[in-house]
Write a protein that binds this DNA or RNA. Sequence first.
DNA 1: TAGGATTTGTGCGTATGTATT
DNA 2: TAATACATACGCACAAATCCT
Lengths: 212, 212
Amino acid sequence: MSGATLRFQRLHAELRARICLLDYPPATRLSEAALAEEFGTSRTPLRRVLARLEDEGLLESRHGVGTLVTDVEIGEMAQVYALRLELAQLAGTLDPLPVTPHVLNEMQSFVRRGQALLATPEARAFAQLNMDYHGFGLSLTGNPALREISERLYYRTARIWLKSIPHMDLADECAIFLSEMRETRTALRAGDTQAAALIRRAHISMSVRRMS
Amino acid sequence: MSGATLRFQRLHAELRARICLLDYPPATRLSEAALAEEFGTSRTPLRRVLARLEDEGLLESRHGVGTLVTDVEIGEMAQVYALRLELAQLAGTLDPLPVTPHVLNEMQSFVRRGQALLATPEARAFAQLNMDYHGFGLSLTGNPALREISERLYYRTARIWLKSIPHMDLADECAIFLSEMRETRTALRAGDTQAAALIRRAHISMSVRRMS
DNA sequence: TAGGATTTGTGCGTATGTATT
DNA sequence: TAATACATACGCACAAATCCT
């Protein structure tokens, strides 16, 4: 892979994370010039990253105004989550990949991170773990198209949880998350990817109800 | 909507159609300079369109080589279609929109176009009608996220049909397509969007089997 | 209302990478 | 192997749009 492509992916992942971890809250105005300087490039390659984030619905560029971080409305969230429920389940039935020792090792490390989080609950660390865990979940399906659109939809509404957590019980959320990961570990140890997908669906469903 | 945005959408739709109607067959090398001249712009705004088409999997830009039209492998097609089947059905259950007189009028005009196509079968006209009909189908769901990813996946593999038609019976395909549209008209007249979605799913499924 | 400050959008020259001779 | 041709990637200067004074 070329250097330009790698830089693009690095900047894209970095800015996407900043948006979804609320380092850049909704309505934040980003400066092309400032970001270009921070990352040591000119505006041109940076603008390609911003254009993609705009295509993904995380940014909105307005001529003469600036590049603004979008907000996520409650109605949009409900519709995206309704779709994510179905896609999560499909990951278990469409093209499930065999559960390798490597997968089990990764799962185990996620459980450990979940335990550490439960010991010292912290919203941003939760959101980061959730983001990483979502990426892990994608690795369980062999359908690239499903992976692509699941990732797209996940990042589209990932900010909702961090925005909702002030009205929720953080310790409870950490305990529930750890519980989900333990259940999933059991399913994966049995080689049952479909069960893991159903667990995922169930927890996404319950999570959105707690946020509403 | 701004002039720049409108131009972007126009060029994007135009180039996407050229790729999916095989005006630009796979492995065609597009020239940024030539396209910019054709559309009366500089390379800069054109490059944004090409970048998006690359994100959508229809193009691949290689530094020092050129911008190449991608091919669609048979394995990828199967996985995308497996997903499209599920999404087509979800369009009927997730957020179905009420069937308005306007929708019925559009449906009727599609049936007429299907009749005209059956009278004088022609592959490219079929592909164009199919493309337009797909856009109409999207208008039956009120879930923007579902619309977005369904469109993305449709255009990802739309070329497969045109590539397969030499090994199939064009007249048969036209008759089957018209039959699907008539069945769908019946369902929509009854206000049954879910039935329309199931008909769509069934025909996508049968279509991919005939192509394989 | 007008004008200046600031932002993104555009155009173009150059750098860099690739393939061929 | 080296040189040449030609493509995309990049950086910068300027145009166009918006906002605030």
